[in-house]
C-alpha cells in the first residue's frame, strides 16, 4: 500500500522542465506562424524590390525605432521580474511586471497613432489611394497591416498574460519556489520581442 502511495505522490510531483518544454514547443508554432508570413514577405520583396522601397518611405522610422526601444526595455523588465521573484523580492517583481505592462501599453499607443496616421492619409486595405498605387505597394501595405496587426494582437495577449501573472504574484501563487507560470509568460513575451526585431528592419528600414 505504501509503495502505491509513494508512486501517486510522484505523479502529482510537478515537472517544471516538462512544462518549459511544452512552452518552447508552443513558441515554435508561433515562430513558424510568423515564419509563414515572412516567407510571403520575402517572395514579394524579391518580386517588387523597387516598389517596396518606395512604399516603405511612407512608414515613420522614428515611431518604429521608439517602439523597438520600448519592446526591448520591456523584455528587460520582464526578465528582471523573474530574477526578483527568484530572490524572493515579491514587491520588486510586481513592480517590474507592472512596468512591463505599462511599456507594452505604450507600444500599442504608438501603434495606434501610427496606423491612424496611415488611415488618415487614405492608406488602408481597399482604399482608393492604395489601389491607385502599384501592385508592389498594395502588397507591401497588405503585409504591413497584417503582420504588424497580428504582432499587435500578440502584444495585447501578452499584456493580459502578464497582468494575470501580476495577480498570481500578489496572491502568492507565483513565488520564489514556483515561478514557472511567470517564466512561461516571460518566454512568450520575449518571442513577441524577437518577432518585432525582424519586423522592424524589414518594414521601417528599407527606404
Amino acid at each position: 500500500m505504501s509503495v502505491v502511495a509513494e508512486h501517486i505522490s510522484e505523479h502529482v510531483h510537478r515537472d517544471d522542465l516538462g512544462s518549459r518544454m511544452g512552452i518552447w514547443l508552443f513558441l515554435f508554432t508561433e515562430l513558424v506562424l510568423f515564419g509563414g508570413m515572412f516567407l510571403v514577405y520575402a517572395v514579394y520583396r524579391f518580386t517588387y524590390q523597387q516598389e517596396f522601397h518606395v512604399a516603405a518611405k511612407e512608414l515613420n522610422t522614428l515611431i518604429g525605432t521608439l517602439n523597438t526601444l520600448i519592446l526591448l526595455t520591456s523584455s528587460l523588465t520582464m526578465v528582471l521580474a523573474i530574477v526578483a521573484i527568484r530572490k524572493d523580492n515579491k514587491f520588486l517583481s510586481i513592480f517590474f511586471q507592472v512596468i512591463t505592462i505599462f511599456l507594452a501599453f505604450g507600444f500599442m499607443v504608438n501603434k495606434y497613432f501610427e496606423w491612424m496616421a496611415k488611415i488618415h492619409h487614405g492608406i488602408y486595405p481597399g482604399s482608393e489611394t492604395l489601389l491607385a498605387k502599384g501592385n508592389g505597394e498594395i502588397l507591401f501595405f497588405g503585409l504591413y497591416y497584417v503582420m504588424t496587426g497580428l504582432h499587435g494582437l500578440h502584444v495585447l495577449i501578452g499584456m493580459v498574460l502578464i497582468g494575470v501573472m501580476t495577480r498570481f504574484t500578489m496572491k502568492g501563487t507565483v513565488n520564489s519556489d514556483k515561478y514557472i507560470h511567470l517564466e512561461a509568460a516571460g518566454l512568450y513575451w520575449h518571442l513577441v520581442d524577437i518577432i518585432w526585431i525582424f519586423l522592424f528592419p524589414l518594414f521601417y528600414l528599407i527606404t
Binding site: 523584455s75 528587460l76 526578465v79 520575449h190 520581442d193 522592424f200 528592419p201
Partner: peptide, 15 residues
Amino acid sequence: TIAIVKSYLVLTFFM
C-alpha cells in the same frame, strides 16, 4: 545579420 544577433542574445540570455 544585426536582427539575428539581437535574437540570439534574447534567446540565449532573456529566454
